[in-house]
Design a protein around this nucleic acid. Sequence first.
DNA 1: CTGAAAGCGCTTACAG
DNA 2: CTGAAAGCGCTTACAG
Lengths: 346, 346
Amino acid sequence: MKATIYDVAKQAGVSIATVSKVINRKGRISKETRTKVLRIMDELNYKPSVVASALTGKQTYTLGLLLPDLANPFFAEIARNVEDHAHKMGFSVMICSTDNTLEREELNISLFQQKSVDGIILATGVQNGGMIKELQKSLPMALIARDIPTLTIDTVLVDDFIGGSLATNHLIDFGHRQIGIITEDLIVMSSKERTRGYLNALESAGIPHNPELIKIIDFDVQSAREAAGELIDAHPEMTAIFACNDLFGAAVIKAARERGLSIPGDLSIVGFDNTLLAEIIDPPLTTVAQPIREMGRLVVDLIIRSIQEEDSIKQRIVMLPELVSRASVSGPARVKAEINQPSPLT
Amino acid sequence: MKATIYDVAKQAGVSIATVSKVINRKGRISKETRTKVLRIMDELNYKPSVVASALTGKQTYTLGLLLPDLANPFFAEIARNVEDHAHKMGFSVMICSTDNTLEREELNISLFQQKSVDGIILATGVQNGGMIKELQKSLPMALIARDIPTLTIDTVLVDDFIGGSLATNHLIDFGHRQIGIITEDLIVMSSKERTRGYLNALESAGIPHNPELIKIIDFDVQSAREAAGELIDAHPEMTAIFACNDLFGAAVIKAARERGLSIPGDLSIVGFDNTLLAEIIDPPLTTVAQPIREMGRLVVDLIIRSIQEEDSIKQRIVMLPELVSRASVSGPARVKAEINQPSPLT
DNA sequence: CTGAAAGCGCTTACAG
DNA sequence: CTGAAAGCGCTTACAG
């Protein structure tokens, strides 16, 4: 029913080799037969089978993308941008969510292999560097928004340490001294770095850090909300929270409001990622922006290069995050009050 | 380098036909050779090539999913659930965003065909029923969260008319009479139906509807916010808005807050979809829930059935939406005031 | 410039 | 129960 290369060849009165050549613009073909073959292909609505040509040693022109959870806005935006640029480069993308379990990760990678994807992009937190190292020999891989420093592998990510500093300094600049942080498990590299950035910013500002102000939680909105609540209840002196992603930021807003706190009046909040969420939420969330679009474009470029060139030089592209100032941060109430009072010194 | 069926056959001292049979559990194979082959397969870490077996007339075990925008939380959640159930059934899924343009839609469908996907799930608003009808002959298709009533095609969607009524009646029950609506272009079936539900609810309650309270806009958050602003500014008598999706609902909240209105005190809002957004936002958004998880499961089941059975009976599954009551709705201020005043009659 | 033939890694009758 | 052979729809040397 669907036309094959044989149908085209027969109709055009040439061999399938010739048809193949005009499809792939390879070898020398006379203009006449080329146009004729092209015309027949069009008439028959012939589309070469990717699976057949893949079997002959060519590519499948599909990429695998592994991420923790497609329903998470940050990863959904990553996926969208990877997808867009991949399409532009002639690749489709197969997407799998792993919920960060090693089991689903291995399963899906093995699936990708069976389906002969040309390369795999990982946005997921495998700690299993050994496995990846092994796989990498036979299949191009790249990391996005993740880091496995021990591996020679194409990587594009944001400097999370700087991001954490940026967020914390912003708060410090506004006069905050008691700053809480809510972060994911520190085995996740990006969380660890953001937390390091937070600690470093405090230290640089000469603010002693209080370990009790650090909450490490699982990645789900509910725990974020509870953690924020506990933090707020236990530390009335705390005037600001750095939430290590926008989802957590939203959760902090909720917890604060439930306790009758106004934002930013009673509690300032800065998030991370600059997803749709930060924009849409009320108050709009001040956050550290990852250049998601650009990052998506870059991983795709890296992996395609590594697909097309044997032994391409691996790169590690570190983007600099930027603070996007919105409405969830102000000076702490105490400071405000001081400012409003006529200073005794004037 | 990667082991093939030949390697396994040689190692096991059998023919490739035999290996194939043990892989596919077909034909009669002695227990001994089966275990032997299985052992060798394991030793060689052999995984059958899906592309080779696909070429032999079998399936590719991949599904295509076409949606307007993966970065939109509603569709991201659809994608996640489709993906999950597809994996459970042994299928991978290739995802493409179309931004609802016909051009990208056709392009991506054609791509899916070249890659020999086993079936296509459409969550996208093609009006091009003719094309789909044609394609359907050669390739199983199913619709999710979309409707093309003129087509005999597997479909699972929510009853948008009832959804619209539910939302509006909820508002009416709370005493609202001047209810605005913000909806996408009415050529999108679901929007049209939700709006019909809204009108019908008003009519049933004997409330004359005011055409000026209906805002039809493009699908983007910015226009939603502007539209909400205009509605609020022009109609101080309006006490509630039905936003045809949660994203719009969030935009309405913003617009209202910008104007110093309190929610739900001054303005009640109900959304649609019950995405993560509705939960995370402040105030939590009362909304009409689509059973996204269930819907994802069902389309996958439908399309797989239609892949496996020639001429399967097409189904159209209409789920009933449910109102999820949260904090964005209360009685209108006027009514509240009356309630609070000692009634002159007592 | 064009074509015959082998081969990619499987599956599927068919024969034994 | 097992295997030889053809075929799926292409591409790629190689010959002419």
